[in-house]
Design a protein around this nucleic acid. Sequence first.
DNA 1: TGCGAGCGGGG
DNA 2: GTGTACGCTCGCA
Length: 874
Amino acid sequence: MEFQILDVDYVVVNDRPIVRMFGKTAAGKSVCAFVEHFLPYFYLRSPAPAPERALKVEQVRRKDIATNREAEFTRVTIANPAQTPEFRDAALAAGAEVFEADILFKYRFLNDRDFRGLGWVQVEDFAEVGTHTVAVDLTLAAKKLAPLNREADAPLKTLAFDIECVSIQPGDAPDARRDPVIMISLACSPAHEGEQAIVLATRPGPGVRYCESEKALLEEFISFIKAYDPDIVTGFNCNNFDFPYLLERMEKNEVRPIFGRCATKRVMARKVAGRFKVTMAGRVIVDSFEIVKKDFSLQRYNLDSVADRLLGKKKVGVKHSEIERLWKGPAQDYHRLVEYSRVDAELALELVTKLNLLDKYAGISKIAGTLLQDTLEGGETTRIEHVLLRAFNKEGYVFPCKPNDRQVAEREAIKQKGFEGGYVIEPVRKLHANVVVLDFKSMYPSIIRSFNICPTTLSPDGDHQSPWGARFLAKEKRQGIIPRILEELMNERQVVKKKLRVAAGPERRVLYAKQWGLKILANAFYGYLGYTRARVFNIDVANSITSYGREIIKKTADRITREFGYEVVYGDTDSVFVVIPGDVDVMAAKATEVAGAVTKSLPGVMELEFEKIFMRFLPLSKKRYAAWKFVPALKEGAAGWEDGIETKGIETVRRDWCPLVGETLQDVIQLILKQDDVKGAVQLFKGIITSLVNGNIPVQKLVVTKTMTKSARHYLGVQPHIELVKKMQARSPQEAPGIGDRVAYVIVKGTELLSKRAEDPGFVAENGLQIDSQYYIENQLLPPLERIFASLNITKSELLGNGRQMGLMDILRARPAVVEPATLPSADVRGFACERCGQFYATAPLLGVCTCGGKLRFTSPKGQADAISINAAQ
DNA sequence: TGCGAGCGGGG
DNA sequence: GTGTACGCTCGCA
């Protein structure tokens, strides 16, 4: 009997805990294994007052991180895990120092028995149990069980769901305390009884499983889940919308929310720090929205754009404000709503199944030992602490409790006073060519290993001293626990990468996720040691790591300059940017040579490697640059290079920018880097400004969108999109955007406050309104572009005109203008006269200015210069 | 430049 | 449940 661990909890029976391991067999059966005779315990530093009512109090020899010496500790075993806080607090009140008194019981069990989240279990001796307390295919009392080394995953069932609801107050957002759920769509992989997707609704119709009341709908939802018995339950934003809503409705309808694998524990959504956390025994809840937001860099994260960008699929187009009408409307309208709902559930499902969203979290679980649910929710700290707890316990150490708020505050103060990070080499500010980037492979993990840096090797009697001034024992004397963990993680990664070379199919995915997880985990240890809430926080250790890093990078830059004669133009923490003349191949060869030579003289496992080539490199400041990058082509056998633009610290896409800004920024960067054409970039920019002033930029490129999150009257300040909604409501209440809708606007010319000049792009086009070009220049284009040009020593006034502080009218003077006949004021215009020298032109000169540089004006038959310049005529 | 507030996704 | 504690962008000082 073997199964893969999905979830673990415990129940208390006769004042003793029974651990329940929920899992899945290779054949796809859901399992729950009961494990008895495992008891909660924690430690006190001896001598300590003996706790009353404990089951067992023993004196044991253990080490702790403060002294690294073996000493007497008191191990206190109790009956009920839930009572640990009482025992702990009593001990603390009596002045004792406590250890491991805040380890969740399920993790106490997993750690002590060497099990891991998503690890496999072999049950060697068991009895099948008849019980109604859990809802699984197979329940057993496990008498003897052991961890099993297996990479492959059990076949998992995934259920996605999506709810629809309608407000009884038209126009308002639905309120779970008041408004019913009308529809629930379910999509499953693999299909359930031949059905891949099902729509439950309280209105009958084709493709709908009809439920006669909301209560019946909620009950049907629960029975479906029980019948399908999924391992993964997913939805898009289900943690913060669907689950809390559904659970509130169940409460209102007196439907017991029991659809996990425990027949007695309710599914619960609890508000934590403004967000909901949902728990369901025996299954894993996956909110695809939250994962996509973490793992993919996108402009927007609504289901429509996420599905479009990641799956190449579209939602059925239904606005939130339309749902009520479709729900109450004729059959074809209702049908559209049903389709909309079904597709949403299908998309939510595909995000998980097609994108293999869980791979990396599964990989991390297997390495760190955390349960999949906790890997999805928790951060890096949780993962590291489980690895550390295991390792410290194995070495005979007691593991510290989490610091309390007072301790955290103390640490913050210490950190504020004396913590220094990586070293950033001051960039040589100009446009560089032929730059090679060399970097240290996993710099901080390598430093930790090379110098044996660990709280367990920190000692005044240490063999070597870090630049920070702390002393550490030599590895030969005693290898630190963290250096050893990192050695294992990094070696394991090499093994996995080797296997990856020949792997295919699902095995390849599992291995790829594993090597990725190993790398991420190894790189997180340094940050952990300097994190004030860490159990193993140590500022001397953290500072020692970065101090070695700074010393090594400075020495490396120095050596490259002095011994190899190359110029170092930039560097950040673990990298040096070096100018090496030649073509890409020559540069790469020389860079590899330099990296190899430097590596030879570096201590331990420190390794400098050639990373990439920047054929052109434009630093703006520390941590901000744009570059034309060349990396060796990835494709097997395809010798050669792949190039692309790389930017750091330069936002090329921002939600509050109109498309014109991003496009112009991209174009300007391309021209500068790829064509080495700074003049052309300036010309391009000036051309855009001219087109903008002339009204030749399509309105769509000037649209900014913002979401209206609450009703317009609830906004306190004046915001452009809200002011626009107010205007649109006045014009046509039916078509005005509602709560949750994205509002698109452009800024038009006028004398009013900027916010009041936001206008509907469609309205602008229909009514021929003028765009406020000055706004687009000053507030949109200039801020990002000015920084780029400034790094090339091109000033704002050079960009906008010729030398002095320029106003908008001055910009117009130097621009090449094209005057289209249709835009001329009237037929009585005879020609153009120069404002400055009076020169007459029958047709406008191409440059739009007089040969003397003066501005041109229309002249009417009366011989009077019209007050309008040709530019403003548009 | 640093800090606090407010929002995102969902209907 | 031997609990927990978002992360980014924007406006303002």
